[in-house]
């Protein structure tokens, strides 16, 4: 038996890979999990796609704006599932009572977060890529044709989703599974405010400043500008990125404070509510 202790590494891609591998093993061993990742995005896309077809038959504006509902629902799903994918991987550690093992291992918080981010991309890819292909097949709408703009939309939506996911993870560490419902429902608070299916101008004037504080609002406005006016609004993407940088920074700080508080309260080993 080797008697050497492994060397200490301040930051390790291998530890991140270990965490990703742990969740990949779970996904590939469980078809219900894979089905669950695809089922709801598919239902949503089909429902909004058919609604768009119906509305477009009765309105010139919507006939011109072909694809906005489908793009909106897919981008909303990226925002929602970006956060949910992050939070579910975190929750899986709590359900499995594995958090103590991870917290006692050399895995550092920043590596833990990086692993959860990668897993949220993996989960989203499994659910969303088939949906985008179905959108082409059913409605002739090709989300991928947005090119670089799509990349920037998705990047910004992921940043928001991860920031919210981080705060939820901190609350779960601090308060146990009693905070679980936040993981599933918190993003719906954003749904009316970030103007997924309608422009910000539809909101009452007093509510519009609130919408403009939220980074996804810029993404959905940018998506409509691209599909309806055929204009790519780089300025909106920059503003979204600036707000996301602030939001993500605040979320990292919040997570650190909640982790510290969990260490003080001795809740890192708790799995219950």
């Amino acid at each position: 038996m080797s008697m050497q202790s492994p060397a200490y590494a301040a930051f390790s891609l291998r530890r991140i890979a270990a965490l990703v591998l742990r969740h990949w093993y779970v996904i590939k061993s469980s078809w219900p999990r894979v089905f669950d990742l695809m089922y709801w995005p598919m239902v949503q896309m089909l429902m909004w796609g058919f609604l768009q077809l119906y509305v477009a038959e009765h309105s010139n504006f919507f006939a011109r704006a072909a694809g906005t509902f489908i793009a909106a629902v897919i981008l909303w799903d990226i925002l929602f599932r970006g956060q949910l994918g992050f939070s579910i991987s975190f929750l899986e550690e709590m359900y499995a009572r594995n958090m103590g093992n991870l917290m006692m291992s050399p895995l550092r918080p920043v590596e833990f977060i990086a692993g959860l981010m990668i897993m949220s991309i993996v989960r989203l890819a499994i659910g969303t890529i088939p949906v985008t292909l179905l959108a082409i097949a059913f409605f002739g709408f090709n989300l991928w044709a947005m090119g670089l703009a799509l990349f920037l939309f998705v990047f910004n939506l992921f940043l928001t989703g991860w920031a919210v996911g981080l705060v939820v993870a901190g609350l779960l560490l601090r308060n146990g599974l009693g905070a679980e419902n936040l993981a599933w429902g918190i993003m719906f608070l954003f749904l009316p405010l970030v103007c997924v299916y309608y422009p910000v101008s539809v909101l009452p004037e007093w509510l519009q400043p609130v919408a403009w504080v939220l980074p996804p609002t810029y993404v959905f406005e940018g998506m409509r500008a691209l599909l309806i006016e055929k204009v790519f609004r780089g300025d909106l993407m920059l503003q979204a990125f600036a707000l996301n940088a602030v939001l993500f920074g605040v979320a990292v700080l919040g997570f650190q404070l909640l982790l510290r508080s969990a260490r003080r309260e001795g809740t890192l080993l708790q799995g219950g509510d």
Partner: peptide, 8 residues
Amino acid sequence: YVNMPMRL
């Protein structure tokens, strides 16, 4: 107080 992931 801890388990290892059961599905793995």
